[in-house]
Write a protein that binds this DNA or RNA. Structure first.
Lengths: 215, 215, 215, 215
DNA sequence: GATGAATGAGCATTCATTCAT
DNA sequence: GATGAATGAATGCTCATTCAT
């Protein structure tokens, strides 16, 4: 928390850039395997094949690595997956829209979120917990999440003929939140109920909520 | 984690029962104020006006207190609030139903969950995080949550004329999950979007999902 | 520096009081032997025959022990030595005064300061350095030193017939400062010049400054 | 402490000389600002706009820089100031002496020391502390201080008609020590007593001690 | 000459848990 | 039953110094 006397440096040489990368990779692996709280700087450095001090050359503390990982996580998983998937729907597969099959659109959205959750479920869970525990992480997440919601919002706005929501921004939030949470539960916990049934109901709920009756 | 050599005892004398109660109260206060991870046995005992050793007379570790608190939490907040509220709807206010105003029913459900979240938001957030971090806590939560979902499921089943879901169990899960998550976000984070708009959309989504067209 | 979550506790049981005492003694010994900066908590605890944690039960950090030692140091050495010596001059040996031998008074003062410096020279040196390096220690020292200077000031005021200073408070400061410093140099460093000559000149300076011509 | 395997080199090229100079300046600034102990090689190098390794090209460790700074400090501040001031008194202003105003001489001495202390008080304080903590620094200081005292001693010897000390070498030591210490206190600490009063008494003490009655 | 990446021993501090009283 | 003293492993972080480029 305290501002360190030694600020973490940014590597300029190739070797430094590689070391920083190794640390992030090692941290990502450890956070997934044993959780953020159980991993420590010594261990992360060792896993990266570096000394403890090297860790602190590039990061002031464990949390800074987590933040970096979260940003990368959103970039690599949610954001990219989303952008690509939605572009596909939009541009590469105009046929979907042509058929006015809004239900397929909903299915795609849920599937995409599910894929994003599946890339590294354990790490995802750790991040979700940290969002609850640390306001700084919460803020980072809010920023990153905002981009995803913006995609959704734009998407909902684009298909006005299919979708009947009034407040498309609030709807995007709602859809993201609800879907994310339900998918998360299905993904992590052997729910009291069969996951397939839950996802199926989720799709049903989304359709009833989002799509025009006459579709 | 490891089972202690000395098992925590159950108090039999009045004094012992009071000490145990004091510890739980102190822990609840501290978990709310500074979070589960930042609180420690010494501090909890001090807050309870007891010695460190006394803490370990009644609990083998901090987690055991948390589990006790979670059970009580569900009893005192979610479960009770739910049961009472829904009974009111059902029995004490048959007029609501008489009007076939399913929308009011939905509104009530959301309001009830919101109330439950408002009783001790900080503690609630800590518990949510622990559910993600600790499988044992997750299991405890699953059990307790199951009761709430059972209420919802029964409720949905009772108003078949109002409600059009096929799989009322899955629907109860879905409704609980989605509402809980959205409310939680609205409650804790200054979302990118106004909370009122989000709750309003949530109600709209639930209505469209749950209620028959002809209501 | 930061306020600890765990505040250092005050021992209530006899055993605890003894442990705290042992830590102070061990610290005093180590600070003398190898200096404040070179000693560390682990070492101090070990020397006291206790675990590291026990050190932190009674002190939040090394500096707190130093402060305690400084206070005790002033109590045990300077203050007491001074009070006793000066009382002796004053009450038990009125003959000195009767002879109007102010020179003996000055000699006593210097001798007393020299004795104070001799009780634990190494520790004294460490403390002097810390006064220069740490404002908090400087303040503690200022307070304690103030008492000694008050004694001197009172003494100077009492023998107005012998002593010709106008501003006895400033004079007390001056005398203390100058004598303390010179003695310190003589005590610690093999000065470029023989210590005896320096002390002799110090006495001469003090006499010329303090005593009436006609003494 | 340990002699390094690689000896620090002496710069021969212009560029090297400049680098060395930059390091000394950066160190001086940092030692003043945050103290000798809190400054470190990395920081010093960064401040000098150089790489860490460059620091170790010219100095084997931090202490070597301090020693260099102390020598320069004495050269630039105390020694020069002294020499110049006293020469002024002696050669350029024979009128002062002609008036047999020894009091002015004393005033000049004190003023000169005060000026020396004022050039970089924080650095001065750090050096004083290091003298107490490190025998090697103490020895360096002894040597440099010796020159100042030699000036004083010579000065005292030159005005035998004004000054009545027997042992002018011891007197020079004494005067330097006492004045230095008192001035230091006035300069650094808001003494319990007003600085002006103390300096005034200091001058009075010096006059009574040094000057002949019939002046 | 200069760079900055890497090292790793070293130290301060925390806290879950035990146990003698 | 209650107390609070004691433990010591664990961990975050620093920084003087080396060395490959």
């Amino acid at each position: 928390m305290t501002q360190s006397k030694y600020k973490a440096r940014s590597p300029v040489q190739q070797r430094g850039i590689e070391s920083r990368e190794k640390i992030i990779e090692a941290a990502r692996a450890l956070f997934s395997e044993k959780g953020y709280h159980s991993a420590n700087a010594l261990e992360i450095a060792a896993r990266a094949g570096l000394a403890t001090g090297t860790f602190y050359s590039y990061f002031n503390n464990k949390k800074e690595v987590l933040i970096e990982i979260i940003r990368t996580f959103y970039k690599e998983t949610v954001e990219d997956v989303f952008a690509v998937s939605l572009l596909e729907i939009n541009d590469a597969r105009p046929s979907i829209i042509g058929k006015t099959e809004g239900r397929k659109l909903v299915h795609y959205m849920i599937e995409t979120l599910f894929t994003a959750h599946s890339l590294n479920p354990e790490l995802h869970r750790e991040i979700l917990a940290m969002i609850l525990l640390d306001p700084e992480i919460a803020e980072i997440n809010r920023q990153e999440e905002g981009k995803v919601i913006a995609y959704l919002s734009a998407l909902l706005g684009r298909y006005k003929d299919l979708i009947r929501v009034n407040d498309s921004e609030a709807a995007a939030h709602l859809v993201y939140r609800a879907a994310d949470e339900v998918i998360h539960r299905v993904r992590f916990f052997d729910a009291q109920i069969d996951g397939t049934r839950l996802l199926s109901e989720l799709e049903e709920m989304m359709c009833r909520y989002l799509l025009r009756e006459d579709e």
